[in-house]
Amino acid sequence: MIARASAEHAETITEIEQACFGADAWSAPQVTDEIGRPTRTVLVATVDGDVVGYASVLVVAGTAELVRIAVVPARRRRGVATRLMDAVLQVAHDAGADEVLLEAAADNDAALALYGRHGFTRTTVRRGYYHGGKDAVMMRHRTVPERTV
């Protein structure tokens, strides 16, 4: 199940950050700030009542950005990230965004494949963007508004 995150999810999201991003993880105050920002929609994915993943999307001036998406390692490859991505694209669409942007580590094959399956295309590479000099792949998805006629 996908739902909007609230302050009560901050501790669990912080734990997911640590499990997924290690040294690059957001701190508890950063997670709390992210949940509380009016320009953000933070979503949580639950399985059997447990939060097992989350995503944060920023929508401003017709453009959405997938800020973060993560699924606890033990729950990967079970469709959680797919459900979160579907929800992110719906949030962007509902907010009237024309496009969704994101970046991913060039060596993160699983993430790049997920984004590709959701219609994202590579736009450019930012050399040395991440710690340790890792490159970032920039990607874009053009949203298609529903026809009302």
Rank of each mutant, 00 (worst) to 15 (best):
Glu103Ser: 00
Gln90Arg: 05
Lys134Asp: 14
Glu34Phe: 05
Tyr129Pro: 03
Arg4Glu: 13
Leu102Asn: 05
Asp107Gln: 07
Ala95Val: 13
Asp98Val: 06
His131Phe: 00
Gln90Glu: 13
Pro29Lys: 05
Asp48Glu: 14
Gly53Phe: 03
Gly36Thr: 04
Asp48Ile: 10
Val100Leu: 10
Gly79Val: 10
Val144Cys: 08
Leu101Ile: 08
Gly119Pro: 04
Arg76Val: 09
Ala104Met: 09
Ile69Asn: 05
Ala3Pro: 08
Ile2Asn: 09
Asn108Ile: 15
Arg126Ile: 04
Asp33Trp: 02
Ala7Tyr: 01
Pro29Met: 01
Ala113His: 15
Val52Thr: 09
Gly132Leu: 06
Arg37Pro: 05
Ala64Thr: 10
Val100Phe: 09
Glu34Val: 05
Asp135Arg: 00
Leu58Ile: 07
Arg127Tyr: 00
Asp98Arg: 15
Asn108Gln: 15
Met1His: 11
Lys134Cys: 01
Val44Arg: 04
Ser6Phe: 10
Ala136Asn: 09
Trp26Arg: 00
Ala70His: 10
Glu11Asp: 13
Arg126Tyr: 01
Ala64Val: 06
Val47Asn: 08
Val51His: 05
Ile16Tyr: 08
Ser27His: 07
Pro145Thr: 01
Glu11Tyr: 07
Tyr130Glu: 08
Arg147Val: 13
Val44His: 07
Val71Asp: 05
Gly96Glu: 02
Pro145Lys: 02
Ala3Cys: 10
Gly53Lys: 01
Leu66Lys: 11
Ile2Lys: 01
Asp109Lys: 11
Thr32Gln: 07
Ala45Met: 06
Val80Asp: 01
Gln90Gly: 09
Ala23Val: 11
Thr82Ala: 15
Val52Ala: 05
Ala28Leu: 13
Gln30Met: 14
Val42Thr: 10
Ala97Ser: 09
Met138Phe: 12
Met139Ile: 02
Asp24Ser: 14
Gly116Asn: 02
Gln30Ala: 15
Ala23Ser: 15
Pro29Trp: 00
Ala95Trp: 08
Arg75Cys: 15
Asp94Gln: 10
Ile35Pro: 02
Val144Gly: 07
Tyr115Gly: 00
Glu103Leu: 04
Thr14Pro: 06
Ala28Asn: 11
Asp107Ile: 06
Thr32Pro: 00
